[in-house]
């Protein structure tokens, strides 16, 4: 698989050359595969948000390169905006960043900046709103009159309206109820499928990661601790714990069952896969216990 985005030996210092200097990333090299949903995990302060802001050129690495389709995005710093249209970034709690008079105008902000015609803009707004599940009647309301979940959708729609090749989200489901989480994360997978795009997102929920991602990247103190497929990563529970994180509960359950002599294969980390395996074991002989 080809890497759509790649960081090569990237380091980042905040407040360089002041007493507040702080190293957020240290020699990070990772590749994000095209057409994959990649999850980024790490404890608070591990550099996730910094890394995410590197991907669309909001932050410029102190050292190292960010490659989009193999090309350094900072080769022409003046044209960084075109990179931002290709790599759409939804920041943390994006609902606090809505500003326009109507939801319609707010979602249309990016398409208008891209210089699209009113007609094209309108079409993209409608498409993005429909995609995140905002009904037509909400579009003419003020964004401040929406509910929390609707605001979040409107903000995500504002980025989707750019039709980015890579969609990056920093904790898209934080603070939502279980149903809201499921819907939003489900939409991300749908976006990947419909547009053949790549999706990268940050989350603290290992269950969500196991359920929605193909690949994972684990950060610890500004460095890459692990990267690989979801089951590869969650197999190494020891290492995950060393980064102050946990594996999904169901993976722990599967692990204990295996140790107790139940012949489960390794690398199971979603409720669905574990229950499928258990049912087939029970169905086979009924004497798994």
């Amino acid at each position: 698989m080809k890497n759509i985005l790649e960081l090569s030996h990237v380091s980042y210092l905040y407040s360089e050359k002041t007493p507040f200097e702080m190293q957020a990333l240290h020699d990070v090299s990772v590749g994000f595969e095209e057409g994959c949903v990649t999850g980024i995990i790490g404890h608070t302060g591990s550099g996730k948000s910094t890394l995410v802001q590197m991907l669309n050129g909001l932050l410029r690495p102190s050292e190292g390169q960010v490659l989009l389709n193999g090309e350094d995005i900072w080769r022409k710093p003046k044209e960084i905006t075109s990179v931002r249209y290709r790599v759409g970034l939804v920041m943390q709690y994006p609902e606090y960043q809505l500003f326009d008079e109507t939801v319609r105008a707010d979602i249309g902000f990016a398409p208008r900046n891209m210089g699209l015609s009113e007609k094209e803009t309108e079409e993209r707004v409608r498409e993005a709103a429909e995609f995140v599940g905002l009904s037509e009647s909400l579009l003419d309301k003020s964004p401040f009159d929406l509910s929390g979940g609707q605001k979040r959708r409107a903000a995500i729609a504002g980025v989707l309206a750019m039709r980015p090749e890579v969609l990056v989200l920093d904790e898209p489901a934080a603070g939502l109820d279980p149903r809201g989480r499921q819907e939003i994360l489900g939409r991300l997978q749908e976006y990947r499928r419909e547009r053949r795009a790549s999706v990268i997102f940050v989350s603290h929920s290992m269950e969500d990661m196991a359920h929605y991602c193909d690949r994972l990247l684990v950060l610890n103190h500004g460095e890459v601790l692990m990267q690989g497929t979801v089951s590869e990563i969650f197999c190494d529970a020891e290492k995950i714990r060393s980064a102050g994180l946990f594996v999904p509960q169901v993976a722990t359950v599967a692990d204990r069952l295996r140790r107790a002599g139940v012949p489960l294969p390794e690398g199971l980390c979603t409720v669905e896969s574990v229950s499928r395996e258990l049912l087939s074991l029970l169905g086979k002989g009924g004497n798994a216990q």
Binding site: Q53, N56, L58, T81, R84, Y85, G88, L89, V90, M91, P94, Q97, F109, A110, N113, M114, G158, V159, M162
Partner: peptide, 8 residues
């Protein structure tokens, strides 16, 4: 940053 991400 959020606005820049949308091309401002």
């Amino acid at each position: 940053s959020a606005l820049k991400a949308r091309g401002a």
